[in-house]
């Protein structure tokens, strides 16, 4: 894989009034990689993406795409980019096809064939001649992706792209992005507040909190650092006996007891031991759930528990 930077953020700051919304962010997105921009709502993901697209001014620093500054060389920089900012908002009273024609005209030299090709790629052939107001959110996302890749950009930026997609749609979407990154060497910048999604989709993840870029890691590093201690929930027939049993094994761990289940924070390696202990006490176990870590948990860990904005 090449490591040619397509998008470069150099010491970006954004001030609104006296408030510093984005505080000194620097990173690069390379050709052929999917970069995940991870952070809770209000951390500054969308603001950063807006600056990248030139929709809002940059207070300090410079963003360049393919070597062109978005502030000084807007047309050249933006020509290499495509994407969605927040929601895929299209003209609802036009058909999907008319929407694409609308954007294609703004690039001047796109053919009808290219539009058809993109429509087929995102799987909208059946509905492309229908008005967008009849589309589901998932279909709008597909149309959003279609307009983003219409002009074969070298950087694709997608803000919360899997909003409104069903699991099959998310899977398909991921495949599209992978293909674009690997086969066409496109750089992809994806923002999300869902960690699980990012892990599956991205090569590298940058974590943003309160307008600061806290950490950048490859997904592999991210997972390696992942501790095995997590909250495990056992569905049992007798929670009282189970609680007594767990208290014996983990003396100072709090348990959460519900009507048919009990959960505890523990090292997942020891799950079999617990099951054995339960069986020994004649507690019938009908289910074990490892709670997937939310971004918040992860976030608290990485940022030293300073909380979410």
């Amino acid at each position: 894989m090449q490591t040619k930077p397509v998008a470069q953020f150099k010491n970006i700051k954004k001030r609104i009034g006296s408030k510093l919304i984005i505080d000194d962010i620097s990173f690069e997105v390379n050709a052929g990689e999917i970069f995940g921009f991870l952070g809770p709502n209000g951390a500054g993901k969308t603001t950063t993406i807006r600056m990248l697209f030139g929709l809002i001014s940059i207070s300090e620093g410079e963003i360049s795409v393919n070597g062109f500054s978005i502030t000084d060389d807007f047309e050249k920089a933006i020509a290499g980019m495509g994407g969605i900012v927040e929601n895929p908002e299209m003209y609802k009273y036009l058909t999907g096809y008319q929407n694409l024609v609308h954007y294609a005209r703004m690039y001047g030299n796109l053919t009808k064939e290219r539009i058809d090709e993109v429509v087929a790629l995102v799987g909208l052939e059946q509905r492309i001649k229908d008005k967008v107001k009849t589309y589901s959110l998932g279909m709008r996302q597909r149309l959003g992706l279609a307009q983003a890749i219409l002009h074969k950009p070298s950087l694709i930026v997608l803000d919360e792209p899997t909003n409104g997609l069903d699991p099959a749609g998310i899977h398909e979407f991921r495949m599209h992005l992978r293909q674009l990154a690997e086969k066409e060497n496109v750089a992809v910048l994806v923002s999300s507040h869902l960690l699980g999604e990012m892990e599956l989709m991205c090569d590298r993840i940058g974590i943003i909190q309160n307008g600061k870029l806290v950490d950048i890691q490859t997904v592999n590093d991210f997972l390696a650092k992942d501790e095995v201690v997590m909250r495990v929930t056992f569905t049992v027939d007798d929670v009282i006996k189970a609680k007594a049993c767990l208290n014996k094994l983990y003396k100072d761990q709090d348990t959460i007891v519900k009507e048919t289940s009990i959960s505890i924070l523990m090292d997942t390696v020891r799950i079999p031991d617990i099951v054995t202990a339960f069986v020994h006490e004649e507690i019938r176990v009908s289910g074990i759930d490892k709670e997937t870590q939310t971004l918040e948990d992860k976030f608290l860990k990485i940022t030293g528990g300073s909380g979410i904005a």
């Binding site: 697209f53 030139g54 929709l55 807007f74 047309e75 050249k76 933006i78 020509a79 980019m81 495509g82 994407g83 969605i84 900012v85 927040e86 929601n87 895929p88 908002e89 299209m90 003209y91 609802k92 954007y103 703004m106 690039y107 307009q147």
Partner: peptide, 13 residues
């Protein structure tokens, strides 16, 4: 409608 965003991210001043 928010369509202004997709309109202004094209290579046109």
């Amino acid at each position: 409608t928010g369509t202004i965003k997709l309109l202004l991210i094209r290579p046109i001043k």
